[in-house]
Design a protein around this nucleic acid. Structure first.
Lengths: 332, 332
DNA sequence: GTGAAAGCGCTAACAA
DNA sequence: TTGTTAGCGCTTTCAC
């Protein structure tokens, strides 16, 4: 049978409440008693049962982290940082890999609620917006990492995706590229990046050409797609991939077409993940300050949980293009 | 205030115990009562509080998954599959990223124990063997994934690392390579792989040369090391990297030395992660059946939790070399 | 077939 | 400063 606070009390010859107070640094306890209790606590290697505390306090010191896809190193990195920061602050972080499945999203949220979780962090896309709305309605604190859903009215921390897209496009343009394709996912952040692209194109006095925008959803499909469009007569000379995963696929597709990067084709990715550093040639990619995002995400959430904040806050971080060797001047 | 089983009981005009029995399919309930209760359950969208169940039953339907390093896609993949299988079976899986830190290992395990966890899965290395021994002594079910620690006497599921190392080396030898270096981590599985290498070298009638074995621990250090040893006069013509992460570093080091893979240097990795498919040239790597490992890991653990099994079991899976383009015949 | 009641391990209000 | 006690929400005997 598990050791309980009662066993400690008995051994230390005090009451349960005294032990509880010692453990939680509450009330006023005489030094002698405190020492006595501490000693027994140590001897018995006592750690209290979480579930009874949760039951009593109606708080599990737990936050759920919903991730759409652990295949993308970006999300792994976000998870790592959120867990890290949570751990520092004594919070449990439960990682839930929803795999972009609306069904799973509901299941995970339901399960988390059963556990009396204190808040939710959503990293990346979410399929089932209705349930989110419901959760928000119930007053459960939520923080968005890596995106903003204006209609939801919750805190968020993300880079200025639009600016990132703008910078990428601007760079391509400065290299003389005119036919710049975009590979985007069907997510809010991709749309923002695309928006930046469009803006840059317009600002350069060029025509925005929708047929250069391709929506796809994984390494595999971006590879197929890239292979296909790179076979066109008037093929793009530069491609902006809205994340590194897509960029990897594009590179593979280009290779199968016999095109060399960056000589025949320039590519820029987004997220600056380990992938951009592993592939050959190293991929120019837009960095998101993930550590900062993880830290701020948790911190925002905690303030919200503690009820300090009532207004909606948005932390917008700056993207930064990390130049590597996947782009080149376009021979005019 | 949260809806409780008592609210359900009141609304359905039955007792709490009846509701409980309906929810858990226990006892004998008349069809009429069952329907009545089900209806209210549905109306109230009732889900029961986990913590009270845990408190009462002393089981949280939770298993902890200790991962040494989320930077390695292998572990991410393992986590994904373990979570997946756990979810299917209604178990919560708590991912704990210990970052190879003995301190964190203890913290996580302590915290998990407070939560009444039912079992522990260890994927990959573990720094603090003493605490493991302690946990085993307490009777907490443990399963090892991707390694075996014979002294611990617990269930495990892993590939035949020795065989994998043997196959890799055999392949290099068949291509005519004689000077084959090994980059290993300081882990049990690396040691097994190295053991296979040694065996293959010996079986080929060659001398085992310890100075060709290098221990390192990340992409960065393998890159530095590779750069260094590839500058030697009598440099290796083939390198066996005990995981893909190391292989990536080696490739980068080789590149900085001006060596082309596979033309000037053959490389084989281990784990067949996404990295081996992303880099250029695609890396020949030894596949571990991760999905199988995740599934079997959870399943072994559950049987153990349910007390069905008493004997130690070891599931040994077969590694499989996936040939890509990172090796080439050695010009004699 | 159903309900009453005890109790899982803890916290916090109130007494002493 | 310390102890007593009433629950938190549920499961599970044991009566009926």
């Amino acid at each position: 049978m598990r050791t309980t606070i009662y066993d400690v009390a008995k051994k230390a010859e005090v009451s349960m409440s005294t032990v509880s107070m010692v453990m939680n640094n509450k009330g006023s306890i005489s030094d002698a008693t405190r020492k006595k209790v501490m000693k027994v606590l140590e001897e018995l290697q006592f750690t209290s049962s979480r579930s009874s505390i949760v039951l009593k306090k109606r708080s599990a010191y737990t936050v759920g982290l919903l991730i759409p896809n652990l295949e993308n190193p970006l999300f792994v990195e976000i998870a790592r940082n959120v867990c890290q920061r949570g751990h520092e602050l004594g919070l449990s972080v439960v990682i839930c890999n929803t795999e972009n499945d609306a069904e799973k999203e509901v299941q995970y949220i339901t399960r988390l609620k059963e556990k009396n979780l204190d808040g939710l962090i959503l990293a990346g896309g979410f399929e089932n917006d209705a349930i989110l709305q419901e959760v928000v309605g119930e007053g459960l604190p939520i923080v968005l990492i890596g995106q903003n859903i204006p209609s939801l009215g919750v805190d968020s921390v993300h880079v200025d995706d639009c600016l990132g897209g703008y910078q990428v496009t601007e760079h391509f343009l400065s290299l003389g590229h005119q036919t710049i394709a975009v590979f985007a996912e069907n997510t809010r952040s991709s749309k923002e990046r695309l928006h930046g692209y469009r803006q840059a194109i317009k600002d350069a006095g060029l025509e925005y050409n929708e047929s250069l925008v391709f929506v796809c959803d994984s390494t595999v499909s971006s590879k197929q797609l890239a292979k296909q469009i790179l076979g066109l007569i008037n093929r793009p000379t530069a491609i902006f991939a809205c994340n590194d995963l897509l960029a990897v696929g594009i590179m593979q597709g280009a290779k199968e077409r016999g095109l060399r990067v960056p000589h025949d084709l320039s590519i820029i990715g987004f997220d600056n993940t380990i992938l951009s550093r592993s592939i050959d040639p190293p991929l120019t990619s837009v960095d998101q300050p993930i550590e900062e995002m993880g830290r701020q995400g948790i911190d925002l959430l905690i303030e919200r949980i503690e009820g300090k904040e009532k207004t909606k806050r948005q932390v917008i971080l700056f993207p930064k293009v990390i130049f590597r060797n996947s782009t080149k001047t376009h021979p005019i």
